[in-house]
Design a protein around this nucleic acid. Sequence first.
DNA 1: GCAAAAGTGTTAGACCTACACCCATGG
DNA 2: CCATGGGTGTAGGTCTAACACTTTTGC
Lengths: 230, 230
Amino acid sequence: MELKQNIKIAVDAIVFGYADNKLNVLLIKQKFGELKNQWALVGGFVKDNETLIDAVNRELQEETGIKVNYLEQLFTFGDNVNRDPRFRVVSVAYFALVNSTKLVLQADSDAEDAKWFSINELPKLAFDHKEILKTAQRRLQSKLSYQPIGFDLLPKEFLFSELENLYCTILERKIDRRNFRKKILSFGIVEETEKFGNKIKGRPAKLYRFNKQKYNKLVKDGFLFEINFA
Amino acid sequence: MELKQNIKIAVDAIVFGYADNKLNVLLIKQKFGELKNQWALVGGFVKDNETLIDAVNRELQEETGIKVNYLEQLFTFGDNVNRDPRFRVVSVAYFALVNSTKLVLQADSDAEDAKWFSINELPKLAFDHKEILKTAQRRLQSKLSYQPIGFDLLPKEFLFSELENLYCTILERKIDRRNFRKKILSFGIVEETEKFGNKIKGRPAKLYRFNKQKYNKLVKDGFLFEINFA
DNA sequence: GCAAAAGTGTTAGACCTACACCCATGG
DNA sequence: CCATGGGTGTAGGTCTAACACTTTTGC
């Protein structure tokens, strides 16, 4: 069976960050090609001897120097045959979360610039990256309700109000503060620390920590994380 | 940017069927290649001007002549660089459901033979197809609880006991008959017909029908299908 | 003492779970 | 009349949803 196939495989990463009550996405400005100066998702072509995951991590490293907290395969975009004007590309998109948008971004060799954009103030994007981003946002919204991935968007120690705001912001709706806290604490996977956050106004707030070990142990015994509010 | 990439893209389909209280998978026996006579998932290489979905449908047509009820992208397997002994292949796996395993299978040009196998009595599979199948089975199990995909495995009109058995079989646990029926009927998306199934023993059982239009309408208003039993 | 955000309980209703008997038919 | 599978209701407990005031701090 002779096989003449001329399709290229790329990976793209949708990197979400959370800061100042906003959900942000990491984009890079392209340095080369017809699409020079357009904003795009982090990504690039897969090397012959490289796994898909390795390719994503390499691109993240090369283009932004960032280290993500959570990474999972999102979807493979390959139904638009003319997606890339240069040649046919099938792109395996990955979904990533990092804690704190404040980390230093280093625009490295392949990207002219790397920057965080609020999900509500996106620039024009290259290729079909807008569609990919929408898919990622929906995945984030749905996963937030049944997996403890919100913690991957926060620093190790966080205020309860930050967690609460994160849920409100990403799910785009209001949540009852008391019920939310009760539910989260009832799981026993979020622990109070001795420390306090440095807020300027109002009563000082305790810092909390997500206990991942405990979560994993509970999961083995059939525990299901679930947050659903009216 | 010169690009020398030598990776091929394939699609594979995991086709589930349900008959005689058993969950079945459609496999084909390979006609050519080093893996001749091994059983494998339906699948093949993507053509240059063909979308991924079109490629899956074409392979399904060519290899089995089957028409599926439900088709969605499952996962892209590309982290095992030596997956296929011939050359590096990245495979986009699709997840498909058909109603009634009794439909006629025609082993066509590319496959020596196409056959249904019970998920519990699988032969040795080619490549990493066993792993793909496991992933598909987990997806089926989890989707069954929050999307009405069980109906895609049944004929248009079905007995309540068939639906019930389908859930028990796929989820591999017992379900309370009364609670199950109550829950399903409470959604208002399954309707009683005037007809009766032709059972041999016992009291005649009414046939029911899934009303997809109604389901879609309800979903727009925020309805969530969910079946969770202890 | 006032503004700002943190922290905290209760109650009514909805939903889930567990459970067993009668019904309609064919042989 | 008996064997077989179909069809049905209720009560107790659990979980959810709705709701507002007090506390601690900085200014």
